[in-house]
Design a binder for these strands. Structure first.
Length: 157
DNA sequence: GCCAACGTTGGC
DNA sequence: GCCAACGTTGGC
């Protein structure tokens, strides 16, 4: 099993938007970066991911999700009305993929970016590296363990 | 609102 | 295939 971190600006898509869905399941679509896409393709059912809110005053991890469907073509790439439309992506050779995630538990209070930066063992974490802009990032089991233990989060089964 | 970092585009 | 110009992301 692998671990990941999924970034989203809450004004675009938030944790609250996710848990509004039946069973807390929704598609993670709209990823338009090749490196991030390749990480989506690596995901397997049962993998876990942190849900991270970016682009706000105090960014941070707000929840935990499970991957419940592996990579499939992102329908938005063919939707001319979507801002995620890609005219260069054909049906025969889809360029972008989505996965489905399920909310497993909110992290309360959120684990903020400043809080993560204070932890020496996390110094080499991808998320904390300068210039990192990827919206999908791998997390090592060690990093996952350290971060998960910061709160007494109960996960649903 | 600024700016560093990085990805993408397009001319050559 | 190189690289300058431009666009986007995201922390501060």
């Amino acid at each position: 099993m692998k671990y990941w971190l999924l970034k989203s600006e809450p004004s675009t898509y938030s944790w609250e938007d996710l848990i509004k869905n039946e069973k807390g399941i929704d598609s993670w679509d709209g990823v338009r970066n090749y490196q991030a896409r390749n990480f989506l393709k690596e995901m397997a059912i049962g993998d876990m991911a942190f849900f991270y809110h970016s682009g706000i005053k105090i960014p941070g991890i707000v929840g935990i999700v499970k991957i419940v469907r592996e990579a499939y073509p992102d329908p938005l790439q063919w939707d001319v009305d979507s801002s995620y439309y890609d005219s260069k992506s054909s049906r025969e050779h889809p360029r972008w993929v989505a996965v489905d995630v399920q909310a497993m538990g909110a992290i309360s209070p959120p684990i903020t970016l400043p809080e993560l930066r204070e932890i020496p063992q996390l110094a080499s974490m991808q998320l904390l590296k300068k210039g990192n802009r990827l919206s999908v990032l791998p997390v090592t089991p060690e990093e996952w363990e350290i971060i998960f233990k910061l709160r007494s989060t109960k996960l649903e089964v």
